[in-house]
Lab assay of single mutants.
Amino acid sequence: NKFNKELGWATWEIFNLPNLNGVQVKAFIDSLRDDPSQSANLLAEAKKLNDAQA
């Protein structure tokens, strides 16, 4: 379904953000699993944090 596809894509993108540490990645992935409907918002937050830590 739509959420599974978005969840998978967001998970892959978060895993590939180079400036996040393992704890941050795990926290974002756990949040995605808790509420897949928020995948776009969580991915945006992860990208912002990644950019801030560059």
Rank of each mutant, 00 (worst) to 15 (best):
K26V: 05
V25W: 03
G22E: 13
T11K: 10
P18C: 14
F28H: 00
T11D: 04
Q24D: 02
R33S: 05
P36R: 03
K48M: 11
A27I: 08
A44N: 08
N4V: 08
D51V: 08
N41S: 13
E6V: 11
A52L: 13
Q38I: 06
A44T: 07
K47Y: 13
W9Y: 11
L42F: 04
L7P: 05
K5I: 09
I14G: 02
R33Y: 15
A40G: 06
E45G: 03
P18M: 07
G8I: 15
A46P: 00
L49H: 02
F28S: 00
V25Q: 06
D35F: 08
K48G: 06
Q38G: 05
K5H: 12
E6A: 07
D51A: 13
S39G: 06
D35N: 12
S31W: 11
D34H: 14
E45F: 10
E45R: 11
N21E: 05
V25A: 05
D34S: 12
A46Y: 04
G8R: 15
K2N: 13
N4D: 14
P36V: 04
F15P: 01
N16K: 10
Q24R: 00
R33H: 12
D51Q: 09
A10F: 15
Q24N: 01
N19D: 03
S37T: 09
A44H: 08
L17E: 00
S31Q: 14
E6G: 07
A54M: 08
Q53V: 06
D51H: 09
L49C: 06
D35K: 08
S39D: 03
N4C: 15
Q38F: 10
F15K: 07
A40Y: 11
L17A: 01
V23F: 14
D51Y: 08
N21C: 09
L20R: 00
G22Y: 14
D35Y: 08
E45L: 11
I29W: 05
D35H: 09
L42Q: 02
Q24K: 00
A46H: 01
L43Q: 02
A52K: 09
E45S: 09
S37L: 07
L32Q: 01
F28G: 00
A10V: 15
N41L: 12
V23G: 10
F3V: 10
G22H: 13
A10G: 04
S31L: 13
L7E: 07
N41A: 13
P18Y: 05
F3D: 11
Q53M: 13
A40K: 12
D35P: 01
F15M: 15
E6W: 13
P18S: 07
D34N: 15
E45M: 14
A40L: 12
F3K: 08
K48V: 06
N19E: 03
L32E: 00
K2T: 10
L17V: 00
K47T: 05
A46T: 01
D34F: 11
A46M: 06
L42P: 00
N1I: 09
V25R: 14
D51N: 08
D34R: 14
K47F: 06
Q53C: 11
Q38L: 07
A54F: 08
K47W: 06
V23Q: 13
D34I: 12
W12K: 06
K5Y: 11
L49Y: 03
F15V: 08
D30Q: 14
V25T: 04
N41M: 13
L7A: 08
L49D: 01
Q53W: 03
N19F: 15
E6R: 05
I14V: 05
A10D: 04
D34E: 14
D35C: 09
D30F: 06
A54N: 09
A54P: 04
R33T: 09
K48Q: 09
A40E: 09
K2H: 13
L43F: 05
K26Y: 11
P18A: 07
A40N: 07
A54L: 07
L20H: 00
S31I: 10
V25S: 04
S31M: 14
P18L: 10
L42Y: 05
K5N: 12
S39Y: 15
W9K: 10
K5S: 14
K2D: 14
G8S: 14
A46N: 00
N50G: 01
G22V: 12
L32S: 01
R33I: 13
D30P: 01
A44R: 10
W12E: 04
W9V: 08
N21V: 04
D34Y: 10
A52G: 05
L32H: 01
P36D: 02
A10Y: 15
S37K: 06
V23Y: 15
Q38S: 10
N4I: 10
V25G: 00
P36Q: 03
A46R: 00
D51I: 10
P36H: 02
E6L: 14
T11W: 12
N19V: 01
A54Y: 08
G8V: 15
L32K: 00
V23I: 13
L7C: 12
F15L: 12
F15I: 12
D35T: 06
Q38H: 05
F28P: 00
F3H: 11
L17M: 10
A46G: 01
W9R: 11
N41P: 09
N21G: 05
G8D: 14
L42C: 05
F28L: 04
E13V: 15
S39L: 10
N41Q: 13
V25E: 01
D34C: 10
E13H: 10
N1S: 05
E13Y: 15
N50T: 01
N4F: 12
N50F: 02
L7R: 03
S31P: 01
A40C: 15
D35I: 03
T11F: 15
N21P: 01
G22K: 13
N4M: 12
Q24H: 02
L43M: 04
K5F: 08
L32N: 00
Q53A: 04
W9T: 07
I14K: 02
L32T: 01
Q38E: 08
A52D: 07
Q24I: 03
N50S: 09
